[in-house]
C-alpha cells in the first residue's frame, strides 16, 4: 500500500516537474520573441530590422493599394532624404513593411518603391509573420472587407512613422502629417548623438 502511494506521489511529482518545465519553456519563447530580429524578404535579400543597426531607421507600415496616405509618407520621406547631404543620407534608411502580402509581392513593392528615394527598402513577409511583428511592436492594422467596392478589402492601419536610433532604440512615432523639414529635424537630432 505504502509503495503504491509513494509510486503515485513520484509519478505526480514527475508530471508536475514536466508541466512546469514546459510552461517555463513556452514563456521563455514568448519572452525571447524579438520583432526586430524577424527575417523579412527585402530588396537586399533576407533582412531583419535589427540588421540596420548602426543607421538611423524609419519604419513605415503600409500597402500598395493605398492611394493617398502611404504615397504621401513615401514622398515626404523622399523629400526629407533629399534635403540631407550625401554623407547624412548614408546614415539613414526607411523600411516599408508591407501590410497586404496577399496582394503585394516583393517584386511589386520593389517596382513601386523605385519611384521614391533609394534608401526606402521594401520589407515583405507572410501575413502571420506581419501580424506577429506588428502586434509585438504595437502597430495596429486590420483587413476590412469592402462589399460595395471593387477593391474587395482595404487595410486600416496606423499611419505613424517609427524612428529608431542607430542603436535600435525606439525614439518616437512621428505623426502622419509631419513635413519633410520636421522629419529632417528628427534625423539631424539622431545624427548628433554619439
Amino acid at each position: 500500500m505504502k509503495t503504491k502511494t509513494l509510486f503515485l506521489n513520484v509519478l505526480f511529482a514527475t508530471f508536475l516537474a514536466f508541466a512546469l518545465y514546459y510552461s517555463y519553456q513556452k514563456g521563455e519563447e514568448k519572452r525571447s520573441y524579438n520583432p526586430y530580429q524577424v527575417q523579412f524578404e527585402t530588396s537586399l535579400g533576407k533582412k531583419s530590422i535589427a540588421d540596420f543597426q548602426g543607421k538611423t531607421v524609419l519604419i513605415y507600415f503600409g500597402f500598395l493599394s493605398c492611394p493617398d496616405v502611404c504615397p504621401t509618407t513615401l514622398q515626404t520621406v523622399t523629400s526629407a532624404f533629399k534635403k540631407l547631404s550625401i554623407e547624412e543620407q548614408n546614415k539613414v534608411v526607411m523600411l516599408f513593411i508591407d501590410l497586404d502580402p496577399e496582394r503585394d509581392k516583393l517584386e511589386n513593392l520593389k517596382n513601386y518603391l523605385s519611384n521614391f528615394h533609394s534608401n526606402i527598402i521594401p520589407f515583405s513577409a507572410d501575413l502571420k509573420t506581419v501580424k506577429e511583428v506588428t502586434k509585438a511592436i504595437g502597430i495596429f492594422f486590420e483587413k476590412v472587407p469592402l462589399k460595395e467596392s471593387k477593391m474587395g478589402y482595404t487595410i486600416d492601419h496606423s499611419t505613424g512613422l517609427l524612428l529608431l536610433s542607430k542603436t535600435g532604440e525606439l525614439i518616437t512615432n512621428i505623426n502622419h502629417g509631419a513635413t519633410s523639414a520636421e522629419i529632417v529635424a528628427y534625423l539631424k537630432d539622431e545624427f548628433k548623438k554619439p
Partner: peptide, 22 residues
Amino acid sequence: AETFELHDMVMEAGRMQMRPLQ
C-alpha cells in the same frame, strides 16, 4: 481606368480608415 469609386478617408487616433461612399 477600369474602375472609379467615391471613397472617404477617416483618420482616427492615428489610424487610417478608407471606406467607399454611395
